[in-house]
């Protein structure tokens, strides 16, 4: 790629203001998506914006995780199983005693696997392998859908146990945290399906666009790594 934009290879127009147009990554530039961009930072503005967004998302999820930690054991965090049968019916339990760890572990493996398939989708986009790109994008979206389905099932089973959003402070904090994450996964699936749909159209998603969607998807995965450990596993 250095040869493409070397001083000697640019005509006068490109040297004055058309350098961006002169930049055309060749087929040998497998990782052209990471290569230099003609901005002040040398990074594409879209990618920088996504990283800034992800940095700010750390603060959002940090707040939600902290809120859950603060309220999970506070006075008022008692849950009475089968509360639907009557006010304060059943034996008192903590919210964490209702977690189905084997089930949530499978969901975690599914989301982790979706991160790996997303990596191969980004690579396929960079290598201009359209059929593989479709395969990996579809697989990532499907795995994400399985994860969201698992979360819906988990929420449903909790509600049947009498664990509603407004049951107490700990349930509100739990549903807000995991629900926000679920919404992020759902938005990611929509982005993936949009990229997938664009592969069937004349105006295709650029490799960089797929990479940016991939960054968002991996971020959703790393946030789940934190939630799974802090909320579900730490005794």
């Amino acid at each position: 790629m250095a040869e493409v934009i070397a001083v000697g290879d640019l005509d006068d127009t490109a040297q004055v203001g058309g350098a961006a147009e002169a930049h055309t990554p060749g087929p040998e530039d497998e990782f052209g998506i990471h290569a230099g961009h003609h901005t002040n930072t040398g990074i594409s503005n879209e990618k920088l914006a996504m990283w800034l967004f992800l940095g700010s998302e750390c603060l959002l999820f940090g707040g939600l995780i902290s809120t859950y930690l603060l309220y999970k054991n506070r006075p008022g965090a008692l849950l009475f199983k089968d509360a639907a049968k009557g006010a304060r019916a059943g034996s008192p339990v903590r919210i964490s005693e209702l977690f189905d760890i084997p089930f949530t572990s499978v969901s975690s493996f599914v989301l982790l696997a979706s991160s790996l398939t997303m990596v191969f989708a980004v690579l396929a986009a960079a290598r201009n392998q359209e059929s593989r790109l479709r395969l990996w994008l579809g697989a990532t979206a499907a795995l994400g859908a399985v994860f969201v389905g698992g979360q819906v099932y988990e929420f449903t089973s909790f509600v049947k146990e009498g664990l509603g959003y407004t049951s107490n402070v700990s349930t509100s904090a739990f549903y807000t945290l995991t629900g926000f994450h679920g919404v992020h996964v759902t938005l990611g699936i929509i982005m993936l399906l949009t990229c997938l749909a664009m592969t069937f159209r004349a105006r295709k998603a650029s490799p960089e666009a797929v990479e940016i969607v991939g960054l968002y998807w991996h971020f959703v995965d790393v946030i789940w790594i934190l939630i799974f450990t802090i909320v579900y596993l730490i005794p």
């Binding site: 990471h34 930072t41 040398g42 990074i43 990618k47 920088l48 990283w51 800034l52 992800l54 940095g55 700010s56 998302e57 750390c58 603060l59 999820f61 940090g62 707040g63 995780i65 902290s66 991160s115 790996l116 997303m118 990596v119 991939g214 960054l215 991996h218 971020f219 995965d221 790393v222 790594i225």
Partner: peptide, 30 residues
């Protein structure tokens, strides 16, 4: 995941700093 899948290890140092700024701010604040 951040280093390999998100390519932070191989990408521009500026991106690493941007993400780490948010992450460290969040951890310190909370």
């Amino acid at each position: 995941v951040a280093a390999y899948f998100m390519h932070l290890k191989f990408d521009s140092a500026a991106l690493r700093r941007v993400f780490m700024l948010g992450l460290i701010s969040a951890v310190a604040l909370y």
